[in-house]
Amino acid sequence: MASGCKLLTGKTAVITGCNRGIGKAILELFASHGASIFACVRREDAGFSEFTSRLAETWAVKIVPICFDMAKPDEIKSAAKQIAAFKKPVDVLVNNAGIGYSALFQMTPANNLKEVFEVNFFGPFLFTQYLVKLMARRKSGNIINIASTAAIDGNAGKAAYGASKAALICFTSVISSELASSGIRANAIAPGMTDTDILVCLPEEVIPGNSQAGGTRKIMKPSEIAETALFLASDLSANISGQVIRVDGGLL
């Protein structure tokens, strides 16, 4: 790839949930476009270390793994402090880490509901509070929240997960307004069904490709979600904020 085609050269991104699925695809794509990256994972294992080292070498970028649990406020703060200690400007934050959950609302125990909200909403909320301050110092920043079409469509079995992602979409809209004067924009991506581990949570009859699924349905690839994240992270979308972009292949 010619360097002129790289959209994130000179930018630093923080991406959560980097060890698989959409987060891993965003990590790969952002690195290939020249971004330095704080790659956040819950636990770093040998495979992830090797993966990030190889990626950093291939694209001549710096990738720093940051380990913390999105459900633990103390760890979130500690992670933000680690990132701040590098004294590097944070240009882009991608709140991608999340957990899936599928059950009819009458079959959803309160503890599961809380757990889903802790990881999918409270954690990103808190992490953003900390990192936004690093952005505000430079009057510049860009937040991308990975939500879900489940937040919009009201799919059966998605009361907890969909509500947590709907909260994330509302959060995106609010911070877009509140942070505009600080030069920070915020957008959300609402992926349709995507080929990640979260698919395991879905009933078989709704998974595209299965005989009972609707004909126009398509399973998105993580890389297809990452491409939209790249657009939102780049200056190509410099005047876009407060939006939710569905990436669902026309799922009806």
């Binding site: 701040a84 509070q129 900390y130 301050k133 505000a136 110092r137 004067s181 600080s182």
Partner: peptide, 21 residues
Amino acid sequence: SVGHMSLVARLEETFDIMMET
């Protein structure tokens, strides 16, 4: 409120701290 966030950001940078909400 906007000025307050700018104040916090400036003080955190000046004194190298990260304030609790």
